[in-house]
Design a protein around this nucleic acid. Structure first.
Lengths: 236, 236
DNA sequence: TTTAATTTTTAGCCTTGTCTAAAAATAAAT
DNA sequence: ATTTATTTTTAGACAAGGCTAAAAATTAAA
């Protein structure tokens, strides 16, 4: 039902909201979609009229339940297609965004679910970002993931180390990391897999070298919004 | 470059022209795309302005070289996606048209060529219609195809029979079919694979039962516009 | 707290694609 | 050869999205 343009706005808002449920400014959305604030303002009104965002004049927008669901579906399609492009068509991870940007607008639940099954119900896209399930929520990440493979923007807790050697544990001490440390992956550098993370509620971001990320087991520390992909919604 | 709407018009015109290079009427196009003749008339003018059709006022349109190429690319994408949906996502042949109708508008040469390779450079879509190659022309059909597997709308010639038993040959005689008979497949009935064909330049169409179609070897009788898929344009 | 800077919205215009109703051209039929 | 029927185009409107320039509201600064 929503047009391509509308879908792009919804996606942008979801991206800018990103966990925190606070409002997103018109200008921020405008920059994200590459339109002028004027055009965006008009669009925000339209999205509000259709019940996809709450729009408080002069104070930005926030996705409604319905809007959030729509946006998550778009994100789901985007990331599934990225997986397809990389896993089956041999694209590199950095060539797929643009194409997935088009494919994501093909709106067929049947298609999406079958593609999902074809890909083996992947949890992460080629950039390491989580893929929403058919219920519009992120799938549960396997308990104990390597930090190197954890999706971004999830609250994580360090639950173990792969290599318990003295040198590594001492290094962790220097970094201020211990069992129970809480962190979130902000960014993943494609070049070497090093991660930009933020610990606990600290404001500062920190870089973790690949060698560290590959030796840390993490788990989600905030399981509340996570629902395991229900059988009944699975295709086939 | 062309919009989705424009692509749909080009596709409709290609479909209506269908081999014969004569002009297509505004009303016919309108019906095909599901628009009014008025809207279509306006669109024909726009297509003419952009050099995709020759538009003779009151006498319909004909695709230009450029327009034909665009339309063939759309058809290529459509039919490749149909193959993908059936071969890899487990759709039935009669469920894929609508979805392919959307996928065909994702315009990326890289994507299309890689998909083509992934599918094994198929010659026919799930309905038995020929898939254009990356050069915008139909690929050469393998010399000697079973009539049952030949694409529609090609000039074919009967070059052999599979089962040379007396009964079958006598039956061919009754049907007026012999070596060298020229025919074109008009329609393929999905139910049992029986074909509606037109012999030579005869106006009347004729139904051929599956048992006959599966025992006749045919070849293209008009190889002029057929160019074998060139290596250089193949991906990977 | 009043002025300055920034952000958001409004106003007005444009393009694409669509429609209906009416006019013009072509084709068919008497 | 005219009238009748059909097809195509034009005219005029509308909705979605987009832009620029200007006005209004909010935030920051002096």
């Amino acid at each position: 039902m929503p047009t391509v343009s509308v879908e792009n706005y919804l996606k942008a808002i979801l991206h800018l909201q990103d966990g925190d449920g606070d409002r997103v400014s018109t200008t921020a959305v405008a920059e994200k979609v590459g339109a002028t604030p004027a055009s965006t303002s008009a669009m925000m009104t339209r999205l509000g009229d259709r019940g996809w965002v709450e729009h408080e004049r002069y104070y930005g927008v926030r996705l409604t339940e319905k809007g959030q669901r729509l946006a998550m579906d778009i994100l789901r399609r985007h990331r599934l297609w990225e997986r397809f492009l990389v896993d089956h068509l041999g694209f590199e991870w950095d060539q797929v965004h643009e194409i997935a940007e088009e494919l994501e607008h093909v709106d067929s639940v049947e298609l999406t679910n079958r593609l999902d099954a074809f890909l083996g119900f992947p949890k992460l896209d080629p950039h390491g970002d989580a893929i929403p399930g058919p219920n519009g929520r992120f799938r549960s990440v396997a308990a104990r993931t390597l930090l190197a493979e954890a999706p971004r923007n999830l609250d994580l807790v360090v639950v173990g180390v792969v290599d318990g050697g003295d040198a590594f544990l001492r290094h962790l001490g220097v970094l201020g990391i211990e069992l129970g440390s809480r962190l979130t992956v902000i960014e993943r550098h494609a070049f070497d897999g090093s991660l930009v993370v933020r610990f606990d509620n600290s404001e500062e971001q920190q870089l973790l070298a690949p060698g560290v990320c590959e030796r840390l087991w993490v788990d989600q520390s905030n399981p509340s919004p996570v629902i395991v992909f229900p059988e009944s919604e699975s295709p086939n």
